Amino acid sequence: MKIAVLTFDGFNELDSFVAATILNRLRAKGWEARITCPTPQVTSMNGVTISRQEPLGFARNADAVIIGSGIKTREIAQDTQLLAELALDPARQLIGAQCSGTLLLAKLGLVGELPACTDLTTKPWVVEAGVKVLDTPFVAHGNVATAGGCLAAQYLACWMIARGAGRQDAIDAMHYVAPVGEKQAYIDRAMAAVMPFVDAEAVMA
């Protein structure tokens, strides 16, 4: 599984790094989550500058894509050339978006009339784009998932692992990153959030 973690200027560090770190727990099984950006370097909302691992075009051929959020998402949502370059396809890719990343999904036409999740700040913009917003941290419709809230990155990663590898791999990844003394509670919460949207027959492994 090659996974593009779309990361734009003004990005939220939690969205990109938490998801990428959890997904890369499956590196031994050939998984690789790569920070994917439109420019060689991007600077986070808190002033942290990083170098991309992959150019934006990587997302077109990736097996899965996660769209992180950031303070410039509304500007990005108006960049029709950039959106067209993504060419995401839920028929062959698992696609997840977090917080304001849901706005980009809406602009790409990948949400439609289906309800979605986003953060409280982005909610008015997503509603304006014609999407019903749920008061829940995670929802998935087929191969497209959305999450709301910075720490919901764990749910996107957990869902993607459950879909792409299996339930036990998702449990193992969550066990590794969860706080000591609270591991089972974190696993139970994550499984409760994502497994209703993971059909046993839909697992891609």
Rank of each mutant, 00 (worst) to 15 (best):
residue 62 A to Y: 05
residue 177 V to K: 06
residue 41 Q to F: 04
residue 205 A to G: 10
residue 18 V to P: 04
residue 123 K to D: 08
residue 119 D to A: 11
residue 24 N to K: 08
residue 26 L to Q: 13
residue 156 L to R: 01
residue 171 I to H: 03
residue 148 G to H: 05
residue 166 G to F: 12
residue 5 V to C: 12
residue 164 G to P: 10
residue 147 A to D: 00
residue 121 T to D: 09
residue 137 P to I: 06
residue 11 F to L: 10
residue 28 A to Q: 12
residue 114 L to A: 13
residue 135 D to F: 01
residue 5 V to T: 01
residue 145 A to P: 04
residue 1 M to D: 02
residue 69 S to P: 11
residue 105 L to T: 04
residue 121 T to K: 07
residue 155 Y to H: 03
residue 130 G to N: 08
residue 132 K to V: 14
residue 7 T to M: 02
residue 85 E to D: 14
residue 164 G to W: 02
residue 165 A to Y: 13
residue 156 L to Q: 06
residue 36 T to Q: 00
residue 171 I to P: 05
residue 19 A to C: 06
residue 182 E to S: 12
residue 187 I to R: 06
residue 61 N to K: 14
residue 163 R to K: 14
residue 151 L to M: 13
residue 22 I to H: 00
residue 4 A to C: 05
residue 69 S to H: 01
residue 32 E to D: 15
residue 191 M to T: 05
residue 68 G to Y: 00
residue 74 R to K: 15
residue 73 T to M: 06
residue 21 T to H: 15
residue 14 L to N: 15
residue 78 Q to Y: 04
residue 50 I to F: 10
residue 185 A to I: 14
residue 99 C to V: 01
residue 197 F to T: 09
residue 98 Q to A: 13
residue 52 R to L: 13
residue 203 V to A: 03
residue 7 T to R: 00
residue 154 Q to Y: 10
residue 41 Q to P: 00
residue 157 A to F: 12
residue 180 V to W: 13
residue 104 L to W: 02
residue 105 L to N: 04
residue 168 Q to C: 01
residue 183 K to S: 06
residue 41 Q to L: 09
residue 75 E to T: 11
residue 123 K to L: 07
residue 81 Q to L: 14
residue 60 R to I: 09
residue 178 A to P: 07
residue 183 K to D: 07
residue 23 L to G: 03
residue 61 N to R: 15
residue 116 A to W: 03
residue 189 R to M: 11
residue 10 G to F: 11
residue 115 P to Y: 10
residue 123 K to R: 15
residue 201 E to W: 07
residue 1 M to L: 09
residue 116 A to Q: 02
residue 106 A to V: 07
residue 139 V to Q: 08
residue 73 T to V: 04
residue 123 K to Q: 12
residue 143 N to T: 11
residue 64 A to R: 00
residue 147 A to T: 09
residue 31 W to T: 07
residue 46 N to L: 11
residue 136 T to F: 07
residue 164 G to L: 09
residue 48 V to W: 14
residue 176 Y to T: 10
residue 77 A to R: 04
residue 61 N to Y: 14
residue 151 L to W: 05
residue 78 Q to M: 13
residue 37 C to F: 07
residue 61 N to E: 15
residue 101 G to K: 00
residue 103 L to H: 05
residue 4 A to W: 14
residue 121 T to Q: 09
residue 81 Q to R: 13
residue 134 L to V: 11
residue 197 F to D: 01
residue 199 D to F: 01
residue 2 K to V: 10
residue 33 A to T: 03
residue 36 T to K: 08
residue 28 A to H: 10
residue 143 N to Q: 10
residue 124 P to Y: 03
residue 152 A to K: 08
residue 144 V to W: 01
residue 56 L to V: 04
residue 128 E to F: 08
residue 139 V to T: 11
residue 140 A to W: 08
residue 205 A to Q: 12
residue 54 E to H: 06
residue 17 F to M: 11
residue 88 L to I: 12
residue 150 C to G: 05
residue 83 L to Q: 08
residue 1 M to I: 04
residue 95 I to H: 04
residue 203 V to D: 08
